[in-house]
Nucleic acid binder design. Structure first.
Length: 293
DNA sequence: ATTTATGTTTACAG
DNA sequence: CCTGTAAACATAAA
């Protein structure tokens, strides 16, 4: 799915486009995507509007103007949100073929019909994504499972170090660093791309166990997580294929990628060995054997 | 209870 | 035919 920088970009762009626009109707083309009773979902959305759009981890949170409720959208692996009106096409998410120019398409599972002939499409090839409505309590419950926001002040070095502790074992957590970075209970917003890029920049092997990291390495990792995500947000994320963002621009981070999808290419740092691809934590993982220890 | 590892969802591309 | 995939839950085992 889009990771923190991509979701952040979508949130910023949608805030400019759909805030307080009347939702005239909602079309549910694939019921299982909507995790609330569909009748209720449509009833609540109809004639409502979004008063605020924000992000927590990789979750989009739309506050509804009426009824003290929230619309939650998670894009998971292949979800997209595409806004379209007579002047603009604004898309965010993992690109698929023929998506933006041909709407709705077979992957358009939920469509929000807005005033002024504008539409917001929720597309998802693999159908892992979700759309649901929650009240304040439901939102709080959902959010309580998330860890630290890496671009907020709460992500201090001290708070980061706390995450390495293990209540059962004084030596600390033993899981590998890649699984740790991907786990949203600890630090949120990092997915497969930024996990690999962060570890490369930190010179840490994805297979390293947490309890073997030195203080120096933890400090470096903390700094790199912030700098990479910050750089990616500024670049409007990483994109492939025909992804375009809210103003039709491609994400700019792709040019900064050092290891993701670079397997078989010479490492840009040591200029000596090729980037390898292995499996760690069940996910394809790229790294440089020589640079990352 | 808490940590850690693995399986499942899913449709398409190559 | 086979494999793999921008994610995260559920479940199991330690």
């Amino acid at each position: 799915m889009p990771e923190l920088p991509e979701v952040e970009t979508i949130v910023r762009d949608l805030n400019k486009k759909i805030l307080n626009k009347k939702i005239k109707n909602v079309e549910v083309r694939l019921e299982k995507i909507v995790k609330s009773p569909v009748d209720d979902f449509i009833k609540i959305m109809k004639n409502n509007s979004f008063s605020e759009i924000r992000r927590r981890a990789k979750l989009l949170i739309f506050k509804l103007s009426k009824g003290d409720k929230y619309l939650l959208i998670h894009l998971k692996m292949t979800g997209q949100l595409i806004y379209k009106d007579k002047n603009n096409i604004v898309a965010g998410g993992h690109g698929q073929k023929n998506d933006v120019n041909d709407l709705p398409n077979k992957y358009s599972h939920v469509i929000f019909h807005l005033e002024d002939k504008a539409d917001l499409f929720f597309n998802d090839l693999r159908q892992f994504g979700l759309v649901k409505i929650v009240d304040q309590e439901g939102l709080d419950t959902y959010l309580s499972n998330f860890g630290i926001e890496p671009l907020e002040k709460e992500f201090s070095l001290k708070a980061f170090k706390e995450l390495f502790k293990n209540t059962r074992c004084p030596g600390g957590k033993k899981t590998n660093i890649k699984a740790f970075l991907l786990d949203q209970k600890f630090v949120v917003g990092i997915g497969n791309i930024y996990a690999d890029e962060t570890l490369f920049e930190s010179k840490i092997s994805p297979n390293r166990r947490l309890n073997t990291l030195t203080d120096e390495e933890i400090k470096k990792l903390h700094k790199v997580i912030i700098s990479i995500l910050d750089k990616a947000v500024k670049a409007r994320g990483t994109t492939f294929n025909n992804y375009v963002d809210a103003d039709g621009n491609k994400g700019g981070f792709i040019k900064y990628l050092k290891v993701y999808q670079k397997e078989g290419k010479k490492c840009t740092r040591c200029k000596d060995v090729e980037i390898k691809k292995i499996k760690v934590a069940g996910r394809g993982t790229r790294y440089c054997e020589k640079c990352q220890k």
